[in-house]
Design a protein around this nucleic acid. Structure first.
Lengths: 229, 229
DNA sequence: GCAAAAGTGTTTTCATTACACCCATGT
DNA sequence: ACATGGGTGTAATGAAAACACTTTTGC
């Protein structure tokens, strides 16, 4: 397999579908492009990957520059490489999604973005490049994975109520779940820690707070347990 | 997002984990490298992707050049992009797996391969580059997908017996399945066509032949059915 | 005292598992 | 006649689904 210079003339980028949850709806963080191509269009945050930068690092950097967040759940999903997907040459892009707690975000200005906003998924119709397809692929992947891995928690504050957790699942999976069955199942997994602290100032019976317990989860997994919702 | 020449200096390749099944064991098609780097090592078949070539096309071409097969089940799995994964510069590789009927293969000579062979998965210990990791990732993906999608059939001849199908699943999933339960389940899905033709020349009661019926499968799917094994 | 969400068990239904014998063929 | 794998049904078990009322708080 020869390696002449002629082979080294592609660019590659990462695009990151950043999911957040505001308590009611699943959202995606989008930027509005300042410059051509696709000036004025909404797009996924992404960037060219440097020569000496690992792919995952590239995706994390995009996220950190935009939101200031570190230590994020990140997952590679698919690589999009159609010949004509980018008007400025051959650019292959590796798509990731990340899950963050929406309250942790402090959006920062960016040189090539006009605006940065959380958009409700159902409201998104077109995006720059092939970004709509990328978002859709990542959304489908999230829907699958959230049923088999305990990743939903990443979208919530450290402490949350069971109703918040249920609403999260309902909005990702786009279907209603039965309250009793949901609680029974999630609690029987034994991966949540319950806190004595209660909700404050709500005009109804206050809910208990829970948090995801990674240690319990590892323990459960070792005993041949499978997260499945 | 600027696009100067300096961005266009990466190469990318596809690597293809080609699975086959010989009736007893799951196998992978490997090549032995003739040249450095990794001369003498076994490796996954792969190639640099041309500037004007779609990724999937690149993966199919690798397969076709090696085996003469077209119309193959192919699935993108993951993209490997560690900075130092390739000794000759920054080469990002997109990994695919394909499923083929081992009997259809006529192995063709290749300029950079010494030898091409079907290797039993469990016998493989090291491979060139990061190919072992790539193979392992693809194998795990196959194991998951084969339970949720009717893709196992791609590894068998058009007509097969239920015992052959069961053995296939057993060797992919690496566990024994109960004969009666397996048959009950697969037949209840109503996605197989039964043929009147019987096995010939076997020293036991001859088995019926079946084939996968894509039309029945589509019909079943529309009625809200899910392949799951 | 009323509105609003939290919290809690039981029954029914369905899918999965475990399990053993007769059948058709070649030698 | 015997060795070999093909083919078949039922009972027990466990998971998922359906379903309604009481509790605690703020106003």
């Amino acid at each position: 397999m020869p390696f002449q210079d002629e082979f080294y003339k592609s660019a590659f980028s990462v695009d990151n579908v950043i999911f957040g949850f505001d308590g009611d709806n699943l959202k995606v963080l989008l930027i509005r492009r300042k410059h051509d191509p696709f000036a004025g269009y909404w797009a996924l945050p992404g960037d060219i990957v440097e020569q000496d930068q690992d792919l995952d690092k590239g995706a994390l950097k995009v996220l950190e520059q935009l939101t200031g967040i570190q230590n994020v759940y990140l997952e590679q999903v698919h690589t999009f490489g159609k010949v004509d997907r980018h008007p400025r040459g051959r650019v292959i892009t590796v798509a990731y999604y990340s899950l963050i707690n929406i309250d942790d975000v402090n959006i920062r200005p960016s040189s090539f973005a006009d605006k940065v906003e959380w958009k409700e998924i159902r409201s998104i119709e077109t995006l720059a490049y092939d970004h709509y397809e990328i978002m859709d692929t990542c959304l489908k992947r999230l829907r699958r994975n959230v049923k088999y891995r305990p990743i939903g928690f990443e979208l919530l504050p450290k402490k949350f109520t069971l109703t918040e957790l249920q609403k999260l699942y309902e909005s990702i999976l786009e279907k209603d779940l039965d309250k009793r069955n949901f609680r029974k199942k999630i609690l029987s997994m034994n991966i949540l820690q319950v806190h004595s602290e209660l909700q404050q100032g709500v005009a109804h019976r206050p809910a208990k707070f829970y948090s995801f317990d990674a240690f319990k989860y590892e323990e459960a997994k070792e005993n041949g347990f499978n997260f499945e919702l």
